[in-house]
Simulated assay, not measured.
Amino acid sequence: MLQMPVHAGEVPIAPLPALLRNADRPFHKDATGSLLPPRTVVFLEGFARSPRYRVVDGCVATFQTLSDGRRQVIDLVGPGRIIGLGAGDRNRHSAETLGFTRLEVVAEPLAASDLEVALTETLARSQALAMLLGRKTAPERVASAVLDLAGQFGRPARQKKRGAVTFHLYPTRTDLADWLGLTVETVSRCFTRLKKAGLIDIQHNDLVTLLEPANLARVAAGDRALS
């Protein structure tokens, strides 16, 4: 039977069968600071509000799920960023790790300056997601995602052209599809097109290198079409 990462007195506001997938490795507060395995559920939508956590290493997906299992990934969160922001006494979304991840509890209450920075960033990313889902084409969405992930996880690429950036691709094609509002097949096709255009390289399906960051940004902005 799947276990849920909840404590005595925590009652969900709605049935959550879809949220319980991959919940066989529930997160416990006493594991803070240890390395959590991939697909560890940090907290669940609808349950009593969890502590806020800062991602030290790794990647966390935040998402909301409909009763039929359809999922919208709200954000992919990298090192230095905080998850669990928001008002109210219930979690407004769920969170799970996408790779080996280390978290730390954020002391409450947050300093006013830190809270302002975190909320401003959250709002900006929400607005960017709304634009992406509402107006961008599939190649523009995937290019935007690659640039975003490179900004969070990228490092200078060795043995590549000057200015190239490489990063580990934590999300699967399914995670990316749920983030970008696309099908898995469309995400895969867009990666292939970006690779054929010489804008990125992909090794072993999880190591991505940006070969032409400026031109990739043009694709993401709609200023350059892919052939």
Rank of each mutant, 00 (worst) to 15 (best):
F100V: 00
F153W: 13
P51H: 02
T192M: 12
T65C: 14
G154M: 01
A221L: 09
D201F: 06
P37M: 02
L110I: 03
G9E: 00
E96Y: 09
L123Q: 09
V117E: 15
R158G: 15
S34Y: 00
N215A: 14
G198I: 04
G151T: 01
A118F: 02
D175I: 09
M4E: 13
P38W: 06
A138W: 04
A18V: 10
F153D: 02
N205K: 14
T186M: 12
S144Y: 04
S50R: 00
E45N: 08
N91M: 07
Y53M: 04
L132K: 06
A138T: 11
L20I: 11
R70W: 13
I200K: 01
D148W: 03
A177V: 09
D206Y: 08
F100M: 00
E96S: 11
T62S: 12
F27G: 04
L210F: 08
S50K: 00
G69T: 10
P17I: 10
T166G: 08
A138M: 07
T65V: 15
K195W: 07
D201W: 06
V187D: 06
L110P: 02
Q127Y: 08
V146T: 10
D24K: 07
G80K: 04
T166F: 02
A31M: 10
A107G: 05
R135W: 11
T97H: 03
T120S: 13
V56Y: 01
R135Y: 14
I74G: 07
A145C: 12
G163I: 05
G198N: 08
T120M: 04
A220W: 01
A225I: 09
E140K: 05
T137L: 12
G9V: 06
S67V: 12
T174N: 13
Q203A: 15
V187T: 08
